[in-house]
Computed example of a mutant assay.
Amino acid sequence: MNQSIARLWQHYQEAEFLFTQCLSSRISFAIITAHNPKGQVLNTCQNRLLDRKLQQEILKLSRPYRSIVGVSHDRLHMEKSWAVWTDKASAIELGCQFNQYAIYYVEADKLHLIPCLLTEHETSLGTFSSRVNVVSELPDGV
């Protein structure tokens, strides 16, 4: 694995999440973004266009979903994402379709980092609830 990919994988492991509601710890869901495919930082307009396309694909699944924002600990990096009540295989497929290196999957409040376009191993990241910040509204411009 090259150094830039290794650095991204480490950043993925440190992610936190902004949500506008608490979720039951009994549900399983994926967290998927379309932003910055293959780690390439795109401008806001490009990311919003990809996000709309991802939302259209999520709608085709006919599964519940919610908006969520993945953030770095210092809040300097944010990516609009979707919490989707779907199985892991379908979530990985969506991640690959949108050229994502990885997605997250939550089962019984356990957060997992799942590679899509990378050959890394699935990584357990502890509890999802410890990484969630419930906010009254999600940040603008993400």
Results as ranks from 00 to 15, higher is better:
19 F>T: 04
130 S>W: 05
108 A>D: 15
73 H>C: 08
30 A>Y: 06
25 S>Y: 09
43 N>K: 10
39 G>S: 09
139 P>A: 11
16 E>T: 05
15 A>N: 09
129 S>M: 14
43 N>P: 07
101 Y>A: 02
99 N>A: 10
123 T>V: 13
44 T>R: 12
137 E>C: 11
92 I>M: 06
129 S>I: 08
128 F>L: 14
139 P>D: 13
62 S>T: 08
107 E>I: 11
41 V>W: 07
36 N>K: 11
91 A>H: 03
130 S>L: 13
51 D>I: 02
22 C>D: 13
84 V>D: 00
93 E>T: 08
93 E>K: 13
121 H>Q: 15
70 G>R: 04
101 Y>K: 05
12 Y>G: 01
60 K>C: 12
23 L>Q: 12
21 Q>R: 14
130 S>A: 15
125 L>E: 08
12 Y>N: 01
107 E>G: 03
90 S>C: 09
85 W>H: 06
58 I>E: 01
101 Y>T: 01
49 L>M: 10
108 A>Q: 15
43 N>Q: 10
78 M>T: 03
29 F>P: 00
95 G>D: 00
63 R>W: 06
17 F>W: 15
103 I>A: 02
138 L>H: 08
29 F>A: 01
29 F>W: 11
18 L>M: 12
3 Q>H: 10
113 L>H: 03
21 Q>S: 11
10 Q>R: 12
1 M>C: 11
7 R>A: 14
104 Y>A: 05
5 I>T: 06
116 C>T: 07
42 L>R: 07
75 R>F: 15
7 R>G: 04
94 L>D: 01
111 L>A: 04
37 P>T: 04
42 L>V: 04
119 T>K: 14
56 Q>T: 08
10 Q>W: 11
48 R>M: 13
47 N>S: 07
133 N>K: 13
32 I>R: 05
140 D>K: 12
101 Y>D: 00
125 L>H: 07
25 S>N: 11
25 S>K: 14
132 V>R: 10
89 A>L: 15
30 A>T: 02
112 H>D: 12
63 R>C: 11
2 N>Y: 09
8 L>N: 05
11 H>P: 04
131 R>S: 05
24 S>P: 10
9 W>C: 00
8 L>G: 01
1 M>W: 09
142 V>M: 09
66 R>H: 13
15 A>S: 15
81 S>V: 02
102 A>Y: 03
31 I>S: 01
88 K>P: 00
61 L>P: 01
98 F>H: 03
43 N>F: 10
122 E>I: 15
114 I>M: 12
57 E>H: 08
43 N>D: 15
3 Q>W: 09
7 R>C: 09
64 P>S: 06
86 T>E: 02
133 N>G: 06
135 V>M: 10
95 G>I: 01
97 Q>D: 05
39 G>Y: 06
26 R>K: 15
25 S>G: 09
32 I>A: 03
141 G>D: 12
74 D>Y: 08
100 Q>T: 04
44 T>F: 15
